[in-house]
Design a protein around this nucleic acid. Structure first.
Length: 213
DNA sequence: CTAGTGATTCCCT
DNA sequence: GGGAATCACTAGC
């Protein structure tokens, strides 16, 4: 007998902690995305922490800009950025307001609304690939810059809600270097995932691009 | 399975 | 100007 996930929204205090405490605690939580098309629930299986002021890998490292403004705001809100000319990725803002720390949502398991997620992710061969990677996750949920700044501590039925779900036991949490982060930022072992979960994205070290001729 | 590369646009320097 | 918290596709083992 498996316990049903707790559908209570996480309170804002959950996010108002150091980002390295929040990040592993997000594993096993349920992110609900509601649109006119329907509802998708995603169980988080992989995340990465970014600690604004001290972290060369963070978008906030070089200070506040129009793009990263939400990172400097109150915890519990979503920071969405556009990258590589094609993709969106989503983060949850953590820590005290103004510290600009956040957790990148890297992968998850679609637990409700698989049919809707497949419509948004036509290239996915298997259900476990629907949200295997940060841009795939955002695509499956229908998340783009229009949701930048959305409050995730909102009742179910709002555009985004993070539910209590079922926290992962500490002995099931793994951590290692962050993926795709350039320069010195990659050295921090601030990527967290659930051991042996099939929806966790494959590790890729950052590969510098050759300039176009 | 791993490694290499083109796609495509926003943002900061 | 040029890099970017990536993906999809291909070749080869």
């Amino acid at each position: 007998m498996i316990a049903a996930p707790d559908r209570t929204p996480l309170p804002r205090e959950f996010f108002d902690r150091p980002v390295l405490d929040v990040a592993p605690d997000l594993l096993g939580r349920i992110l609900v995305r509601t649109t006119p098309d329907g509802l998708i629930a995603l169980r988080l299986t992989e995340v990465e922490a970014y600690d604004g002021p001290n972290d060369p890998g963070s978008h906030a490292y070089r200070g506040r800009t129009a793009r990263n403004d939400v990172m400097f705001g109150p915890p519990g809100h979503v920071y969405v950025y556009f990258t590589y000319g094609m993709w969106h990725c989503m983060n949850l803002v953590c820590g005290p307001e103004g510290r600009a720390s956040a957790v990148l949502l890297r992968a998850g398991e679609i637990t409700e609304g698989v049919e809707l997620a497949r419509k948004r992710r036509l290239s996915a061969r298997y259900d476990k690939e629907l949200a295997k990677g940060p841009a795939r996750l955002a695509t499956a949920l229908g998340v783009d810059r229009a949701l930048d700044g959305t409050d995730a501590c909102a009742p179910e039925g709002s555009p985004l809600t993070l539910l209590t779900g079922i926290p992962v036991r500490p002995d099931q949490v793994r951590n290692g270097p962050r993926t795709g982060v350039a320069g010195d930022g990659g050295v921090h072992p601030w990527r967290f995932w659930i051991a042996d979960d099939p929806t966790v994205s494959p590790y890729r070290a950052h590969t510098p691009r050759r300039r176009r001729t």
